[in-house]
Amino acid sequence: MNTFVARLRIFVTAFALLLLAVAGSPVNAQQPQRVDPQADAVKEEQLLQQLQVIKGRGTIPDVKSYTLEQPAGRDWRHFHEVTLRWIGGIAILGILALLVVFYLWRGMVRIESGRSGRTIVRFNAFERFVHWMTATCFIILALSGLNITFGRPLLLPLIGLEAFSAWSEWAKYAHNYLSFPFTLGVILIFLMWIGGNIPNRIDVAWFTRGGGIVGHDHPPAYRFNGGQKMIYWIVVLGGSAAAISGYVLIFPFYGTDVHSMQNATMVHSIVAMLFIAAMLGHIYIGTIGMQGAFEAMGSGTVDVNWAKEHHSLWLQQEQARATGSNQSQARPSATPAE
């Protein structure tokens, strides 16, 4: 009996040892002579070269923080500090210089046949309201936006850190909130004037004949001539691009990462600079560039001779409509000025 127990004990012990050895062997096999965790360790250089950004896993809710490194910020910095300022400077100062030269050369485009004293309605009250709402918003958006780009080098040294910060905070609020009426204005402009702004063959002729502003020619045009159609599409497309990229910026990281935010600022600011340059040209023609143009958006009426010279086909349409309806009721679309 005793011998059996002893044998059993030996057997069990041997079995247990065998188990241990079997279980232990993979552990031993995994241990090389020298530990080198570097063997398949991630390397910063390599990760940056592969992806330009290093991401991992974090333990806090803010998923943006899982991006460990994004050296692309350096390129964005260069864009914002150097490239954008060149683009903006050249676009805005360039167009201003061109306008000055053009004005000195051409002067104000006069109504060649003089004022007739009779006027015709060009834009009704609603159209003028939409135009001026959008224009006011645009000017404030442009100034508050340019403040972000150029304020620090140009304005800050003049008024000091505190005043500049206070002004910039207001400018930021203005920029954020006026974006809504501006966007509404762009949508209304799009709907209101799309009818007269589809490019056609008359515009080609209009452009080839210098549009009546370069030479002294008066190519025919309907309600909107080729140049005005261009402004229309710049406002509609540029306004949409500015609005879409702007709303990406206003709602940061709603479905975007830092990379798309950087791209949104780049799109937004480049569009803005070109947009401002184009609008300077628009403002020029609407004011000192052309006699009789401002009234169209001011009082809403233009002189008949102005209409004859710049929108001959539109005037014919309006007059035909007026005489057509004059038989039944007097429609005062062409009224004496007294």
Partner: peptide, 30 residues
């Protein structure tokens, strides 16, 4: 912090995602 206007530009430029913004007010206002 007296001068900062919460524009978020430093976060776009920072290679290490260091700047943080308390969320205040409506939309993404920082």
């Amino acid at each position: 912090k007296d001068l900062c206007i919460g524009c978020g530009y430093c976060f776009y430029a920072c290679p290490f995602g260091a700047p943080q913004y308390p969320k205040v007010g409506n939309f993404g206002s920082r």
